[in-house]
C-alpha cells in the first residue's frame, strides 16, 4: 500500500511535458525497429539521390550515340553495356530514375489531392452528393486498373504526361474511398461534436480536425501507390503508350530492346532490375509505414 502511494506520488510529481513524445517521433522509433522497412527507405533514398545527381554522375549524355560501340556488353567503359544506338545504358538508367520517380510521385500526388477532396465531400456531407461520388468510384473500380489507364491514354494520345494523368485518374477512387470511410468514422467522434457545439464552421472542422485525423492511412496507401504507379508507367511505356523516344524511361527501354534478347540480353537486364528495385523499395517502406501508422488496416 505504501509502495503504491509512493508510486502515485512519483507519477504526480513528474512534469507532464516529459511524457509527451511527439507522435511522429514515436512512429519513427518503431519504423526504425523494422529492418525491412529501413531497407526499403534506403533503396528509395538511393534512387532519389540518383535522380537528382544523374546529370553530375552520368558518364555520358542520355541521348549521346556511339554508333561504333553499338550493343557492347558491359565493360569498364560502359558499365551496363550499350543499346542498339550505342547509347550508354548505365547513363540512361540514371536518367530513367528521374522519370519513374517523377511519374510515381506526381501521379500519386494528383490522385491523393483529388481523391481526398472527393472523399471528404462525400463522407462529410453524405446524401445525394455521397451517392453520386460513390457510384462513380464503384464504376471506376469495376475496370481493371491497367485497362482503365490504357483507355485514358487511348483517348488522350500516347505520351509520358498523358500516362501520368491516366495513372492519377485510375488511382483516385482508391483514395476517395479510403478518405470517405475514415471521415465517416472520425465524424462520429466526440471532439467533432464538441467543435460543432462551440460553433466552428464546417470548413474549419474539416481542415483542422477531420483531415489531420484521417491522413495516416492515406500516407500508407500513397507510398504503396507510388510503387504501383511506377510499374504502371513502365507498363504503359512498354506498350508504347507512355514515354516516347528518346526519353530514357525504363519501360520504354525494355520495349525498344526486346528484339535483341538473343544478341544483347544486357540491354534488358538492367532496366528491369531498376524498376523492380525501386518498386520493392516503396513496397517495403509502405509495409513498414502501415505497421507503424495504421496497424488496424494490416488485417
Amino acid at each position: 500500500m505504501a509502495e503504491l502511494a509512493k508510486n502515485m506520488m512519483e507519477i504526480e510529481s513528474k512534469p507532464v511535458e516529459e511524457k509527451l513524445t511527439p507522435p511522429w517521433k514515436e512512429a519513427w522509433k518503431s519504423f526504425c525497429k523494422n529492418r525491412l522497412a529501413l531497407i526499403g527507405l534506403g533503396i528509395v533514398i538511393f534512387f532519389i539521390l540518383i535522380a537528382f545527381l544523374a546529370p553530375y554522375v552520368a558518364p555520358f549524355g542520355y541521348k549521346e550515340q556511339h554508333l561504333a560501340d553499338r550493343m557492347m556488353p558491359p565493360s569498364s567503359k560502359h558499365w551496363f553495356g550499350t543499346d542498339d544506338f550505342g547509347r550508354d545504358i548505365f547513363t540512361r538508367i540514371l536518367y530513367g530514375a528521374r522519370i519513374s520517380l517523377w511519374v510515381g510521385f506526381f501521379s500519386v500526388l494528383g490522385s491523393v489531392v483529388i481523391g481526398t477532396i472527393l472523399g471528404i465531400i462525400s463522407g462529410y456531407y453524405g446524401g445525394l452528393v455521397d451517392a453520386i461520388i460513390s457510384r462513380i468510384f464503384d464504376i471506376m473500380l469495376a475496370f481493371p486498373s491497367t485497362l482503365l489507364a490504357i483507355a485514358v491514354v487511348a483517348i488522350l494520345g500516347p505520351s509520358l504526361q498523358n500516362a501520368l494523368i491516366a495513372i492519377a485518374v485510375v488511382n483516385v477512387p482508391n483514395f476517395g474511398r479510403l478518405v470517405r470511410s475514415k471521415v465517416l468514422s472520425v465524424k462520429q467522434e466526440e471532439y467533432i461534436m464538441a467543435a460543432r457545439a462551440v460553433g466552428m464552421r464546417d470548413t474549419r472542422i474539416l481542415f483542422y480536425h477531420i483531415l489531420p485525423n484521417s491522413i495516416s492511412p492515406v500516407i500508407v496507401q500513397a507510398t504503396l501507390a507510388i510503387a504501383t504507379a511506377i510499374i504502371e508507367a513502365a507498363a504503359l511505356g512498354f506498350l508504347g503508350l507512355g514515354a516516347q523516344p528518346p526519353t530514357p524511361e525504363w519501360g520504354k527501354m525494355l520495349a525498344d530492346s526486346k528484339e535483341y534478347l538473343v544478341q544483347a540480353p544486357w540491354t534488358l537486364f538492367f532496366p528491369g532490375i531498376a524498376i523492380m528495385l525501386t518498386v520493392l523499395g516503396f513496397n517495403l517502406m509502405g509495409d513498414g509505414l502501415q505497421d507503424v501508422l495504421d496497424p488496424k488496416l494490416k488485417q
Partner: peptide, 22 residues
C-alpha cells in the same frame, strides 16, 4: 513474395524467354 509483388511482369516474361527458351 515481396519481390514477386514488385516484379514488372513484362520484364519477368522477357527474362523467362531468355532463360527457358533461348
Amino acid at each position: 513474395a515481396l519481390i514477386g509483388v514488385s516484379m514488372p511482369i513484362f520484364w519477368l516474361g522477357l527474362m523467362e524467354q531468355w532463360g527457358f527458351s533461348i
